[in-house]
Each structure stands twice: as structure tokens, then as C-alpha cells.
Simulated assay, not measured.
Amino acid sequence: MTASDRDRDRSGRPRNARPRDAYGRPLPYGAEGVPTMPDELELGSEETIGEAQRLLDADRPFHAHEVLEARWKACPEEERPLWRGLAQLAVGVTHLRRGNERGAQALFSRACAVLGAYTGPRHGLDVPGIIRGVKERRELRLR
């Protein structure tokens, strides 16, 4: 079995077969990694928000991104920008944790633009407050 066979399901879609560290970096096959989220994860909006927040609080932004991405793929079309923007924020934090400041700032900018244009259901989230918080933290990092 080749590495590419292990990383794809029968239909050819990628899966999370390779072990990863706490920030989602791939580890060698056979290494002990941090468990990732299942590919078929299906959570409702409130469950997604709760789980993503729990993971962020535990300093596992890569895993929070996976939860948000799963919701993004399963949600109604009108909500996709919300979940995409939130997933981008989690990836931005992941990049910060990995030491990639430039990549983090690019993702934060993209996420704020997506979330700023979003007019759909917010599921109790203070989207303008999230954007303000990201921009304030970005300004602090740039000083």
C-alpha cells in the first residue's frame, strides 16, 4: 500500500490518515499524533460553535478549524460564508502557533472580509465583535 492509497478513501477523497501534531502539522506515518476530527463529522450550528470554542480554549486551533470546516460543508448555502470565515480565523491562529505570521495575517484579512460581508443567520455569534477583536489583536501584533 502506498502513502497515496492510505490518504484517500475508495472514491478518491482525501482523509485524515496521517498522524498530526497539536497544531495540525503532519507527522511521519506510524508516529504518535494528536487525534483529529473524523472526516464525517456532522454537528448542528450550536454544537459546532461549542466544540470549536472548546478546542480553541484548549489551544487546538487546527482541530477547531476541522470542526468549522465540517459545518461549512454541511450547512445551508446561505450560511457558508459564516462558517468559512470562522474556519479561516482558526487556520489563522494555527499559522500563528506554527510561527507563520505572514500567513496568519493573510487569513485574518480574508476572514474579516468574508465575515464583514455576511448577512445571514449568526446563531448567537457577535460577528461584528469577532471582527473587531481580530482587528484589535492584529494591530497589537503589528506594533
Rank of each mutant, 00 (worst) to 15 (best):
S4P: 02
R6Y: 10
D7K: 15
S11N: 10
R15M: 10
R15V: 14
N16P: 09
A17M: 03
Y23E: 12
L27Y: 02
P28S: 13
V34Y: 07
P35Y: 03
T36I: 07
P38V: 12
E42I: 06
E42M: 03
L43R: 08
S45W: 08
T48I: 00
I49R: 07
E51T: 14
R54V: 00
R54Y: 06
D57M: 11
R60I: 02
P61G: 05
F62P: 02
H63V: 10
A64P: 04
H65Q: 01
E66H: 00
A70M: 03
A70C: 13
A70Q: 04
R71F: 06
R71G: 03
A74Q: 14
E79I: 04
W83H: 05
G85M: 04
L86P: 00
A87G: 08
A90M: 06
V91D: 09
V93Y: 07
T94Q: 12
R97I: 06
R98N: 09
G99L: 12
N100W: 10
N100R: 13
R102I: 15
A104N: 07
Q105C: 11
Q105T: 13
S109G: 13
R110G: 15
C112P: 04
L115T: 01
Y118N: 06
Y118F: 08
T119N: 08
P121Q: 15
H123Y: 15
G124P: 04
G129A: 00
R132W: 09
K135I: 10
E136D: 13
E139D: 15
E139G: 11
L140F: 15
